[in-house]
Design a binder for these strands. Structure first.
Lengths: 241, 241
DNA sequence: TGTACATCAGTGAACGCGCGTTCACTGATGTAC
DNA sequence: TGTACATCAGTGAACGCGCGTTCACTGATGTAC
């Protein structure tokens, strides 16, 4: 019942964006508008439910994509699978993506329940990095030694404190510089998906899937995730030659 | 006259987001709603004008910030000045930023005039990278040699073609891998600003200015922009000790 | 098996509101002679 | 200096529409005895 309303509302998101009309949803369900109030106390309540669902659907998708890599030690494959899952989900449900990662809805304040759901995807990604660190992968094989040394020296106390707080919550034991590279990669992933989806790649990048993969490979390099087959020194070897 | 309408409309953006009301703007100007039609043919026309203005205002800000670095060879300082200008502008005018870099307005299609204006900021940033290349800075001093070699090998034909097209338009002569790192940095910059502005840093990053600076320093490392004072090997030295 | 009653999903009318756009108009300002 | 006329910024009423939310209600379904 409430699930059906949400399903119709999700369709409306595609055309109306966040200024979703409760009356329009009711109309499409063959109901009178006041009937919706039996299921949702207000339009904002419906919106909140959609936001929560979107965060959870994305989180679930990412978790599943990561879990589908059966050899858990293939850390780069896990990273690529998880980030590709984000992009694929965003392309499949652009309105839901925009709802959670786009501009805030004017006049709408997300209730605190959404915070935990919002964390689901970043936490899934962080777990991959934590596994990499636990398995002894040297942090960032791809940054030069000098750059890596600098990275730690460069951190101000305030940023370090932020990192330490998240570290303790999510990935205990991970060095702050490593977490920093993880957050950098997280930003790069959402930045790439958002710029593509919001139209900033028009007339610049046409090969979007390949470009995304390339960016995520670069981020894997940055985080020091080992090449998928550990046979080639620093060279990636999956997919030919 | 039209400038005043746009000024009031910009204030409305702050509260209403993109579902800006033409009647509301007229009301605030002490005019009757139909009077606005003497200056803008429709609500969408007004929106288009605001989008154009926003792209140009941001572009101008970035160009000015770059130009303010009088020693043009201080490439890292120019990069930091330009990217900080983006963030500062976005924080000062969040609604205008959301209008151009947030989720697309439902039912609104940006006319082609906006494309040239949209390019202004990326072009200003690309120029810094082109100057770095022209002055003989080795591309990406901070990636390990193996990683940098990989970067070129990793590019597929399609991505390479995209890069070549942009290169020929904007920064003739720049190697594709170097442009790629520039685009990566461009994405990182807008990703960081957007995630901050759209609320994804809540409960994660509090020291936002310092964090942003750190990310942009990292990107400068990635692009191989030399440290601000060329006296310290690989170590950054501006700002003490 | 049959009646009385409670539950509750959905109705329909109404509230007060705001919107974009049109159209014939007023009335001040400026120009031409 | 004075009159006649054109320009044009802004008015006011109206069009048809949609919205979120409320409230008293109907009528089917299910439960209790």
């Amino acid at each position: 019942m409430t699930a059906e309303i949400k399903a119709v509302a999700r369709q409306h998101l595609e055309t109306d964006g966040a200024n979703l009309s409760l009356r329009g949803v009711a109309r499409d369900m063959g109901m009178v508008s006041s009937a919706v109030y039996r299921y949702f106390a207000s339009r904002d309540d419906l919106l909140t439910a959609l936001i929560l669902d979107a965060y959870n659907a994305l989180g679930e998708t990412v978790e599943a994509a990561d879990a589908a890599v059966t050899d858990r030690s293939r850390l780069r494959a896990r990273w690529l699978a998880a980030t590709r899952a984000v992009r694929r989900w965003a392309l499949a449900k652009p309105a839901e993506y925009a709802l959670i990662y786009g501009s805030p809805v004017p006049g709408y304040a997300a209730p605190p329940d959404t915070i935990a759901a919002a964390a689901r995807t970043p936490v899934a990604l962080a777990r991959i990095l934590a596994d990499a660190h636990a398995s002894g992968t040297p942090p960032s094989t791809r940054l030069s030694a000098a750059a890596h040394e600098d990275l730690a020296a460069q951190l101000t106390d305030a940023v370090r404190a932020d990192l330490a707080r998240t570290r303790d919550d999510v990935v205990p034991g991970l060095p702050e510089e490593v977490l920093l590279l993880g957050i950098t990669s997280w930003i790069q992933m959402f930045g790439t998906v958002s710029l593509e989806l919001f139209g900033q790649f028009n007339n610049v990048i046409d090969a979007r899937e390949e470009f995304f993969d390339q960016q995520m490979e670069l981020m894997a390099d940055l985080m020091g995730l080992p090449p998928t087959r550990q046979d080639g020194g620093g060279r990636r070897s999956e997919g030919g030659t």
